[in-house]
Design a protein around this nucleic acid. Structure first.
Lengths: 249, 249
DNA sequence: CGCCGACTTGACACCAATCAAGATAAGTGG
DNA sequence: CCACTTATCTTGATTGGTGTCAAGTCGGCG
């Protein structure tokens, strides 16, 4: 639905995640809404895939869709190619996320690992049967879908920003807040992806990502300790800048 | 889910729409997947709202979410404000679309009419009960949600385009193909929205929309008969240009 | 130590935002 | 029916940010 159901997050929902997907790490995530029992039901029909390196394709645009995937550990990117060979990354996925969106029986996007990952593969036919048998489980997936729709809408707003440093600030703030990549003690963010990935996510060139980092650095919003290790003195200042409140030095 | 279920569109699904939502106009839309019986069940818990003019607010960001809305006729825009007062339109909605996405019991976006509209309002509590009672209906809503996620991802790609004339071409092609706004005999598209709406949807300035129209006109991809009536000689050429294949004069 | 990939920085051209002015269309009152 | 008014759209001139191409730097690894 263009907007969705969601709304009051159903009460009495556990955030545990052992058997089915390792969603327990990182801060509590709103869409981790499956009970142990539901995760058991899902894991009963799933196959585990261990993908030991980045850039491993999982499926690609246009191929026949027979599975839904759930990410257990690691990071995955979802992307699509334009006709001119450009790539738009539609999402970075983290543990607990589902992927494998299809239309007319074919995947509409491509999926690749960014890091070493564990993926659970669920046959769509069995999944459909299961969902019809378990309305509450299905409702939780519906809520998850609504969450992902919100995430996509958030990215529309990010990509809609005109200045590249704001776009980058949005991404950095998101990564810090949601996915356990931020080390509170050191105030550092460990980026799992490379510059071209960031560029294709923000819809700018890789060079502009560098320049955007430079501008954030000059405003003391970030400091590059290395290309993938970013110190962030004040998360709230970064987030404020990302959302338009001009943050002075 | 970051991607979703969807996939093989369930068989044996009617596209009729009389009682609940007037989804029958325009070409068959993939997410119009409700049976008469399901529509009846939904209409039993819904209230009809007739909104006789454009710019009527339906709900706004941050207010308490107690309803899901279904659009019966007309056009609605979903948008969000950035902190600097800019507006990003996240979607134009057409008959059959659902809206009212919420998080923690509050709407995350604002919704306003663009034209005269008919809206069906569904109390979330009753809807939730109904969905748990009717797993197939719920599955159809899940498929609808997956469709909307695809639509949002499509907009990410549109907004990610660097040239404004390509963005505009994408929007025009979409409007032609999906929503019964295109007159096949005359080869004209009737735009229901004004320039600032188009601008805030494409994330460009209103002036740039005008210039983009000018450029498309110079390439003979469109002709402005008036500000809201656009002649489109070849839909396929327009679509090809939108997707990156450079279309010469 | 030197190679290699990844990232950064510089120079230039181009596109879009902005501010401002002009054109078009629709609606109002004489 | 026409003049006037207003809202909307278009066009122009300027400025700044970004893509592109190219060169340079950093860091890891053999």
């Amino acid at each position: 639905m263009q907007q969705g159901i969601a709304s009051p997050v159903p009460e009495g929902i556990s955030v545990r995640a052992r058997p089915f997907s390792a969603v327990s790490d990182g801060p509590t995530r709103i869409h981790n809404v499956l009970t142990r029992q539901e995760q058991k039901a899902l894991s009963d029909i799933s196959t585990v895939l261990e993908l030991s390196r980045g850039r491993t394709p999982i499926f690609s645009e246009g191929s026949k869709a027979e599975f839904l995937y759930a990410l257990g550990s690691g990071v995955v990117r979802i992307y699509r190619h334009t006709r001119r060979g450009e790539r738009q990354i539609l999402a970075f996925l983290f543990p607990g996320d589902l992927f494998g969106l299809a239309e007319d029986g074919r995947y509409v996007n491509s999926a690749e690992t960014v890091t070493e990952t564990t993926v659970y593969r669920l046959p769509l036919r069995q999944l459909r049967r299961l969902l019809l048998r378990e309305p509450l489980l299905q409702l939780h997936l519906l809520i998850k879908a609504a969450h992902d729709l919100r995430t996509a809408q958030r990215q529309i707003i990010i990509v809609g920003q005109q200045q590249s440093d704001r776009r980058l600030a949005c991404l950095l703030a998101d990564l810090c807040q949601s996915h356990g990549l931020f080390d509170d003690a050191e105030r550092t963010l460990r980026l799992p992806m490379l510059r071209p990935d960031i560029a294709d996510y923000l819809a700018v060139s890789a060079e502009s990502v560098s320049r955007a980092f430079g501008r954030l650095e000059r405003k003391n919003l970030v400091r590059r300790l290395s290309a993938t290790l970013i110190e962030i003195p004040s998360l709230s200042r970064l987030a404020r800048f990302a959302q338009g409140n001009d943050a002075g030095g």
